[in-house]
Design a protein around this nucleic acid. Structure first.
Lengths: 209, 209, 209, 209
DNA sequence: AATGAATGAGCTTTCATTCAT
DNA sequence: TATGAATGAAAGCTCATTCAT
């Protein structure tokens, strides 16, 4: 059992190594631009080894994105689930949460947003596509829940909460991708932090005036 | 000379045809996913012909984006250059302008934003990269000018105008890319129009509170 | 027009060159064992060129077999269509015809029989599979027609003509494949000729006694 | 020693399990199409284990065919060795014997015939090739012996008995492979039985008229 | 000027085989 | 002895790019 256990742990470890390498390469080159060879080299395995862990390129890509969406959702759940907080405060924490994710690993969001913003999804198998879409939807639902509460309690002017969540997500995508696009120009993390927080809050209030 | 002139015009015409085809294909497939063959087929020329007008794929891509950025800048100049308008009104018109561009041809912005939001730039020659970056910078400068004026005249609370322009651009990217990412879900153009206008204006004021 | 014509002829010529090379390689190595690279080398083109003429390996294989079945059917039609011949004589000519095909190019039959005798068909697209099967069926129908006539005119004892055709085809396959399997042992062409003729005729009579 | 013996028997058992799995896979997919992994999975061992029993794929294939040829020869010996039977009756029993083998396990013959009818042999080491060829030759010799006797005793008209044996083998191959090629069309076992018997007998007589 | 045809380089994927455990 | 894991080598196929006509 000891052997089997260690094997399993080692296997899981290597899987993570590969996913890490994939995250890096996919975020730098995009889905089409990334090559299995480069991912393999970064993970320090042979290309053939990748296929022991993922049945093909698109499944690797999908697994990666699912993992990252899961991380994002978990963080959003923490915020949404906090009892006894006024919605405006929750909105502020929402901004913090997304910024946290970005600070923890900018590539996570870069990948998720790139995926949302582009066509790679069409190449995936329907099941994986479905899984990814439903996780993304859950993220939006969590955000929408916060606004819903705020509207019900009179903090925000009546407006469809899903539309608000959409808008926040869009703003957020814009900010992060914009940061990304300026890579090399020493992006200021505080700048993102501040504008993000402000943008989300004013948006949540202003949109329905 | 009449002959030479007509030749030149015909050549220019074909160049435009190719760029149009490229715009379509690049916006649908992304840089890596697009093939010269598909672009050629759409432009109704042979693949070899593309190389009479553009020395390679990345130059074609760059030329396309430069053209589109130029179009965008021209429209921004119209807004920025109007005399006798109060800055808040200019901001409103700024939103209109960007939405106009999007309405006139969504692919223009889709391409520009995708390019900004991703890594294709790294493949281009330094000169072209420089040219593209400087045009993008000019667009930002034009927007920043509007906010600058507003701040000087006391309409907006003091804040670095370039940062404001950045934020507007980011919000806008977010909204458009978000729209794009939901292709197939019957996007509502009015929704984009309204939220865009609102977002820019509230942002312009709120950011400095 | 002269140019277009010559181009078309050259293209057709090259297509034939490729098919010839494919015939050779497929008959030596079988479908799975053959490589596009070897076929290309034999045809003195690059592997990529093969894909200008055939969309993939299985289509190349199918095209080859269709062409060869067509050749076989044409020869069988000549025999079946001859007026004023007694069925026993027709049977004799049938043996000659099949032997002719074999003499003209042993690889033709080797390929057709190998294909019939193995699993490669399952890899082809349904349409091509259908086309190949229908041509093979036509060959059998032609042979069956000869026996049908012989039975009706009392030359052969009553028996289902299709079953007879099946049997003849089987015998023939056996003889040719057996020859093939002994390659290198100086196969005697006359031997095949004689036994083939004898086998077909005795079979045609004996089966129903 | 008891332990060593049991070990040996277990080893032999596993070898047989592997050969059985190989027989199945090779007959379904052919030599090139079969994969060591599929064979291993069917034998419920790891791919690496195969290499403890056979030094490589082609040796496994060869071992399999040698075993099957041995089985076939044993059955032929039974027929050839029976005293006090008239040659015509022996011929009849020869047909039965071959049909028995086919009934006992169609895959045995399918494999042997496929191998004879194709090129896989060229990949084998000279020694194995030699061994296979000599066993096939022995099978033929056994059949030839029957005809030899018949000729000597005046039952069949003078003809080279080896040629007769060749022909019978060829007919038989044809019938079985033809059956195989129609897999899926509910092949009728009685049909094979009857035509086989008839074909061998008429051939044995007719060939020398 | 335009193109049909060709190809080199490179990609994803498979698989027989090896080896540390 | 048995195997999980790894990989080198090769396969099918694609595509940006070139070139003779």
């Amino acid at each position: 059992m000891g052997v089997a256990e260690r094997r399993a742990r080692e296997k899981e470890l290597r899987r993570e190594t590969i996913l890490d390498a994939a995250k890096d390469v996919f975020s730098r080159k995009g889905y089409q631009g990334a090559t299995m060879e480069e991912i393999a080299a970064l993970a320090e395995v042979s290309p053939a080894t990748l296929y022991l862990y993922f049945s093909n390129k698109s499944e690797l890509y999908a697994s990666l994105n699912i993992k990252m969406l899961a991380f994002l959702c978990r963080r959003l759940e923490q915020v949404a689930g906090q009892k006894g907080l006024e919605p405006p405060e929750k909105v502020r924490r929402l901004a913090h949460a997304m910024h946290d994710v970005y600070t923890f690993d900018p590539l996570i969001l870069t990948n998720v947003l790139h995926m949302q913003a582009s066509q790679e999804l069409t190449e995936l198998s329907p099941e994986l596509k479905e899984q990814i879409n439903s996780m993304a939807a859950q993220g939006l639902r969590l955000m929408a829940g916060i606004f819903q509460q705020g509207i019900e309690q009179g903090h925000f002017k009546p407006h469809h909460p899903v539309a608000l969540a959409d808008l926040v997500w869009a703003v957020f995508s814009g900010l992060v991708l914009w940061e990304e696009s300026k890579r090399g120009f020493a992006p200021d993390k505080d700048y993102l932090q501040t504008t993000l927080e402000l943008a989300i809050e004013t948006m949540a209030r202003g949109i329905s005036n």
